[in-house]
């Protein structure tokens, strides 16, 4: 595949390196002369020096023959014009843009650039998920990963505290198989009420695993 990348810095270096190792042909447009020079010495790729939102520079870099264009500069407005040019004038089949302002994901999509990725968005998502799942002590896939076995500690302010298992309405194909309350193992029944500090042994399928965990860990 012929990949055209607009941008510079570490991200572009490591990405290009990964792409060449997978036998893709990489061309980079960098407007930083020194950065581009360094890149040219480190990797066997074509480097074009210039402003990637300039149609002539895009043409020089072979935009007409590229299969993929990645707009990875650190300015949303530049990535936007690069993508628009690549689409309107060079008909690059697949175009991908990086956006900084998470709101611009929606803006790009509205203005015809379908694949806009916000690093801010991805990172906040990861951090949130990490924060939710920090109460999970153990996660073991069993039966070749067809089942998940998870141990969760219920927090004081968890939404399911003081609710019986039958009222809790766990998603289908999930089971609270065991409880450890004050070091005492309990095999719960439908009428068993969950208490703060309970260690829950959850059996779930990978499909509804996340949903079930969310239910147990969501706080008031």
């Amino acid at each position: 595949m012929r990949v055209l990348i607009v941008g510079g810095g570490k991200l572009v270096y490591f990405l290009s390196r990964a792409l060449i190792s997978k036998k893709h042909k990489v061309t980079v447009i960098d407007r930083n002369w020194e950065g581009g020079n360094r890149l040219a010495k480190q990797l066997k790729i074509n480097i074009v020096f210039g402003d990637g939102s300039d149609p002539e520079v895009l043409e020089d870099a072979g935009a007409f023959y590229s299969d993929v264009l990645l707009a990875l500069t650190s300015f949303d407005q530049d990535n936007f014009t690069i993508c628009q040019m690549a689409d309107a004038y060079f008909q690059v089949p697949r175009i991908l843009a990086l956006v900084n302002d998470p709101d611009n994901e929606k803006v790009f999509k509205n203005l015809g650039i379908a694949d806009a990725i916000s690093t801010t968005h991805i990172l906040t998502g990861l951090i949130e998920r990490k924060a939710i799942f920090e109460d999970i002590v153990h996660l073991t896939p069993v039966g070749d990963g067809k089942f998940n076995l998870t141990e969760v500690v219920l927090k004081k302010n968890s939404k399911v505290v003081n609710i019986t298992l039958e009222d809790m309405k766990l998603p289908a194909d999930c089971l609270v198989a065991g409880l450890i309350r004050r070091d005492k193992p309990i095999i719960p029944r439908g009428k068993t009420r969950l208490r703060p500090g309970d260690r829950i042994i959850l059996v779930s399928l990978p499909t509804n695993h996340d949903e079930a965990l969310k239910m147990l860990t969501v706080e008031y």
């Binding site: 300015f75 407005q77 936007f80 014009t81 203005l111």
Partner: peptide, 16 residues
């Protein structure tokens, strides 16, 4: 002073 800023914001103003 930046063409790309003008181009992008104008389209956002118009379409969104």
């Amino acid at each position: 002073g930046e063409d790309n800023v003008n181009i992008m914001s104008a389209q956002v103003a118009k379409r969104m």
